[in-house]
Structure formats: C-alpha cells, structure tokens
Amino acid sequence: MPIYFQPISENLPFSLESIGNHWLQDSVSRKLGYAHYHWLQTESGQGQIQLAGQLIPLAPGEGVLLPPFTPHAYFPDTGTGETWRTRFVTLNGLLADQFPKILGTNQPIFAKDNPEFSYSFWIDQIVNLLENRTLDTAQTSGACYQLLMYLSKGYENQLATSHPLFQQYISPTITKIETAYAEDLTVERLAAEVFITPQYLTRLFRRFTGKTTQQYLLDTRLNKAKAFLMYHQERSVETIASQVGFSSVSRFVQVFKEKNGVTPGRFRRG
C-alpha cells in the first residue's frame, strides 16, 4: 500500500502533499474537513461518502475532489462483501487560493476514469515515478496542474450529465461501451439500442463529450489496453488486443502507436 508524503513547496504553483494507491481504506470522519484539496477514488470494492447530509456511493473508478475544510465522512460499503481500496491525492501550492477559478467551482467535484483521462492511471504513474525517484518537483507541479485541468472538465461534465438528452441517450451508451468494449460494437448497434440514428447519436456524443461515438469507443478500448499492459504482464499483446475488442493484432498495434507514440510492447516496458 504505497503512500508518499512530500513537503509543501511555497515556490511552486502546484504541489503534491500526499499520494497513494492500493490503500486499504478505513472509515474516516472529518467534521471540519481536511486542510488541502483531497481527491479520493475507489480502486476496488465500493465506498460511500457523506456530504451535506447526502450519502453518495463511490464505485470502482469513481472519485471526488474535496475542497479544503469541507465537512465529510467516508466509509466502506459493507453490503458489497468486498474490501474497499482507494487511490488518493492531496494538493496544495502557491496558487492554492486560485484553485476554485481553475476548477470552475469551490464545491466538491465528482469524476471517474474515462477514455480521455484516467485518474487511476495518473496516480499509479506518479507513485511509480516516486518509487523509482525519477520525478522532480517541477515535474510534480506540472503533473498536478494536469490533474486539476482534467478535474475542471469533470465539473463541466457534471453539469452536462444532468441534461435530459445525456440521461436518455449518452449515459446508457457509455455504460454499454464500458461494459461491452470487447464485443463487436459498432455505432449502428449502439444507436439501435437507444432507438435513434447513428448520425444523431454521434451528434449528441460530440455535444456532450467532444468526441464522436467511434472515437469514444476507441479511446475506451485503448485505455483498457493500457491497464492490461501495465498490470497483467502475463498476458501477450495478442491476447490483450482480442480482450479489448480488436480482431487484428496488427491493427491494434498500429492504432495504439498512433495514439500513444509507442507500441504496446514499448509502453509495457516503460
């Protein structure tokens, strides 16, 4: 259960106070909140967080950014029968008082791993770099800014996801993509499941996600592939290609390199 604490640097705009993953999460109650911005994300199992009298579940991949001094409590959801493990980050820095402007809000932000950005992968990468002592303070500051920018998009998505069109068409399609990415999914099939045309579904995807339906599906598959490459060394590239929905390993390698600048094998070696 790696956890790292770093001294707060007053000379950097963004700094990392602590970070950890694979954390066996106990119950926590903070009536006065925490002194720094705190990102908490479920890695496995399920937790619940209490905010402003509401009890909100945190499933795997889902997380919340808590502003400083926000009263809260969180605890494992014992009904799942699984141990709750989390990833977390606490942030500060010279520009900490400007974080609400960067994020677009001073309220908690709920977000989850998505094809554009995986918070889980970001944390695991930073932890790995810290373990190998290959991350300097300037790089850390830049990485923290990247995290904040994607969390600001998470807030924008929070607003978008309340729209009726998102709820009716995009939400079920995203669920289908995230649970059936290994299947032979097409835009036509996805559109048929929500009873609209492929063209209209793609227009809605562009409106709410900034991507076409096909791009969202492809990014989901590639993000799953990254996780498999990183955490399942025993699986061959051919096996992973098939498991994330590619019928051709050569096509998988080609697309992976186009998107990431390296082949799957090179990515795995770090």
Rank of each mutant, 00 (worst) to 15 (best):
K176G: 03
H163F: 07
S152V: 02
M230T: 12
L151E: 01
L190V: 03
E234W: 08
Y181L: 06
R207C: 09
H232K: 12
L159I: 14
F195T: 03
E156G: 09
V237T: 14
F166S: 01
T161E: 13
S236E: 01
T175E: 13
E183S: 12
F195L: 13
T179I: 00
Q146S: 11
L201R: 04
Q146L: 15
E193Y: 05
H232N: 14
R235F: 15
Y200A: 11
A241D: 02
Y200S: 10
Q158N: 07
Y216P: 03
K153T: 05
V237K: 12
L222P: 01
E188S: 10
Y200V: 07
T239Y: 15
T220G: 06
T175I: 09
F166L: 02
I196K: 00
K176N: 11
E188I: 08
F195G: 00
N157P: 00
Q167C: 02
T179S: 11
L190K: 04
F195C: 02
T186Q: 07
R207N: 10
R235I: 06
K153Q: 13
Q214W: 10
Y155M: 06
I196A: 00
E193W: 09
F228T: 03
E178G: 08
L229W: 07
T209Y: 07
Q168K: 14
S236I: 02
G210D: 04
E178K: 14
T213G: 08
L147M: 13
L222W: 09
K153V: 10
R206C: 06
L147W: 06
Y169L: 08
Q167K: 15
A182K: 09
T197K: 07
E178H: 12
R203C: 09
L190G: 01
G154L: 07
E178W: 09
L190H: 02
Q199A: 11
I240T: 04
I174S: 04
L222H: 02
L204W: 05
L151H: 02
